[in-house]
Simulated assay, not measured.
Amino acid sequence: MKRSISTDGAPAAVGAYSQVTATDDFLFTAGQLPLTADGELLDDASVADQTRQCLNNVAAILEAEGASLENVLKITIFLNDIDDFEAMNETYADYFEESPPARSAVEVGHVPKGAALEVEAIATVE
């Protein structure tokens, strides 16, 4: 059965979507921008700092359902500029040192709110 989950540990949904949708076996996060839990957009921050905030948001959302980044099976990263890949990847690697999940990273026309990237994840529930 599908259920929607939200947490105050990550930015609130600002549209017709849930922070995460869950089934008995999987968690699907909405795309996470570099927004703090209070809603501050870090669009002027470095790509590394924006990556860190996006991944911290994903982690907070997963933790609300008793999971962690270790449960992530797949991550998709939407980059405003593919030239930011290296800076994103260096920070990303700090979060997934062992057994990293499958990942796609693509350049898109524009990430919402002028951010450098947006990150979404699919995780398993144990």
Rank of each mutant, 00 (worst) to 15 (best):
N71K: 06
L73K: 10
T36V: 11
L62H: 06
Q32R: 15
V20D: 00
N57M: 05
I77K: 02
A93K: 03
Q53L: 08
L33N: 00
P11N: 06
F78M: 13
E70I: 04
C54A: 13
E86F: 09
D44K: 14
D25S: 14
E90I: 07
E65L: 08
N56S: 09
T29V: 10
D84Y: 01
A22C: 15
A30M: 12
F85C: 01
A87D: 09
E70Q: 12
N80E: 04
G39H: 12
A48E: 15
E70K: 14
V20I: 15
S46P: 05
E70Y: 05
L27S: 03
S68A: 08
G39S: 10
T91A: 07
T76H: 12
L33S: 03
D94Y: 02
Q53I: 04
V14H: 13
T51C: 14
D25G: 09
E90Q: 13
D94W: 01
N89Q: 04
I82D: 05
A64D: 11
L79A: 01
L27V: 15
A59Y: 04
D84G: 05
V14W: 13
F78H: 12
T51L: 03
N80W: 02
A10S: 11
I77W: 07
I75V: 15
T21C: 11
L69Q: 03
A93F: 02
G66R: 14
Q32S: 10
L41Q: 11
L41F: 11
L33H: 00
Q32M: 14
D8G: 11
D81K: 08
I82P: 00
L42S: 04
D83Y: 07
L73T: 11
E97F: 06
S18F: 08
F85N: 05
L35C: 06
A16N: 15
V58Q: 03
L69T: 03
A37K: 15
V14L: 14
Y17L: 07
N57C: 03
E86T: 10
L35P: 07
G9K: 15
V47T: 08
C54Y: 03
G66P: 12
L79S: 00
E63Q: 15
K74T: 07
A22R: 03
E70R: 14
Y95V: 02
T36A: 13
S18I: 06
D49A: 14
I75T: 07
G66F: 05
P11W: 07
L42G: 04
P34E: 00
I75W: 04
Y17I: 02
L62P: 01
L41K: 13
M88T: 05
P34V: 01
